[in-house]
Structures are given as C-alpha cells and as structure tokens.
Design a protein around this nucleic acid. Sequence first.
DNA 1: CACCTCTCCTGCAGGC
DNA 2: TGCCTGCAGGAGAGGT
Length: 292
Amino acid sequence: MPELPEVEVVRAGLERHVVGRTVERVEVLHPRPVRRDPGGPEGFAAALSGRVIEGARRRGKYLWLPLDGGDALLGHLGMSGQMLVQPRDAAPERHLRVRMVLDGPRELRFVDQRMFGGLSMSPGGAELPPEIAHIARDPIDPAFDDAEFVARLRRRTSGVKRLLLDQGLVSGVGNIYADESLWRSRLHGERPGDGLTRAQAWELLGHVRAVMGEALAQGGTSFDALYVNVNGQSGYFDRSLDAYGQEGRPCRRCGTPIRRVAFMNRSSFFCGVCQPVPRRRRVRPATAAVPD
DNA sequence: CACCTCTCCTGCAGGC
DNA sequence: TGCCTGCAGGAGAGGT
C-alpha cells in the first residue's frame, strides 16, 4: 500500500538504477497490468523494446520514465505494486507480471499481487503524460500552490476527507495520511470544505505536508540498495499512527477511544471528541428574488 | 463541471 | 479442516 513517500523512494531508486539503460526485451506475463495500454500486451512490449530510459519522474502516485523519442513508460503501483531491479537470472517473484530486460546484467521487474497497478506506454508523454494531466501536484512538490489549494478546498461542498482523497485537488494523499492529517487538525472528515475557515484549511494543509514529510524522511533512508523495493513494510507502519487503524485505542490527546466508521467502501478512524461529527448543514432560507 | 457510487483484484483473518 | 464472508484501497467509469 504505497503512499506518496514510498512512491517517491521508488522514483529515486529508478533514477539511480535504470536511467541511461536501454530496454532490450519485454515480457508481459499477465495481461491485466498493461490493460491501459492502447496496444495490448504485444503492442506494449513492441513499443517499449529498444527504447532508452532518459529519466524517472513522478506526479502524485504516478511514475513515468521518459524515453528517447518523447514517449514515456507510465506506471502506477496501485495497492501492492513493486518495481524491482534484479539480476537477469534471479528467481522470478511469485507475482512477477512484467519483465523488462535491460542492457547490462540486470532487468526491471514489475511485481504486483493484486494488480490494481499497471504499466502503459504514453505516446508523447515524456514531459507529462496526457493520461495524468488531470492529477494535481502533491504538497511536497515545490510548485504546489498553497493558496490555490486552500481557495479551491473552501469552494467545495464535499466532506474534507473526500476532498483530500480527490487527486485532482491534491495528489498523494491516501486513506492513512488523510486520517492522520485530520486527527492532527482536529477536523472531522465529513466537515464540508466550504465550512472550513481560512485558518483551518491552512492548518490542515500544513499537517498533510508534515505527515508526508515525516514518512518520507523515514522511508528515504532504507532504500539505498541495488534493487528498489516497496513492500508495505517501509515508512508508515514503523511510525506510530494516531488515528488510522487505532480503533478502540485511547486518543493520544484526550484518551477517548478512537472510532471507526465505514467510508467510501473503506474505513475512517477519528476521535469523536477532538474531531466532533459536524452538525447537519444549516438549511439556508430561500433568498427572496429582488426585482431590479 | 461537481458530486457520488460502484468496480476491479488477491490474500488473509475470522466465524462456524 | 475447509468453506464462506468481509476487508484492504487508488482511481477510472459512469450515473445524476
């Protein structure tokens, strides 16, 4: 379950270990991870073979490798995806889905148990794949526009947790970091965006950024190995979480047991005292039409 | 557009 | 022991 810090660690590893290499041959072992490729498994393999990898970039939880000729290899790790740089003769992993044999002794492997993730060729996508042009920048990105985010958040009527998970508004925030940021901000996730004060929205952004930064600082130290790995063990499971997964445990601020509720086919964890459930939005009285 | 729900996929935990 | 159900969850598809 890589969140943004883990994806950034993978990006950095790819930058170090595969940039400058040529993809000599591609083997697609399961069609699902390349389902988004317009050419299907065969087209994907053919289009990628022979290309030189010129970089390793990221937008939110998407990764892409710009290739010679202006195209890109676009990837998403989904829930359980890994990018591994392995010796060619290393034993295949249980959930190995795509092998990309590089010049030199190694190959890039896409391993994914649940196959929510995937790879695809993005024609003309070297600078920014058009498939992900709608994904917002993340709060760690130096070009992230804080004031714009706050303004947009405060115009939306959805609950603020739903908004944090909207990758078009801000990227890189998953269920875990959303719950942690809201706990730190003492905000309930159902509070509508347009019900937040300016100060609350700014504080929330600060906490989102802090949670990500802490995880990034932790995860970034343990991936200096030859192969790049994301297995869910890194980063946030070592951190002590204040809300996510803490059902029944006392809130670290007030001691009240953390609650868990169903939300968007998953769960939300929060402190019912520090993060009170919002009252139902006041029904605005109909404004009388004023004749000109 | 904004908003919301459904869906994809596998492995594991828990109940009986 | 083994079957069944529920759960984890990013983000696209599609409805209103």
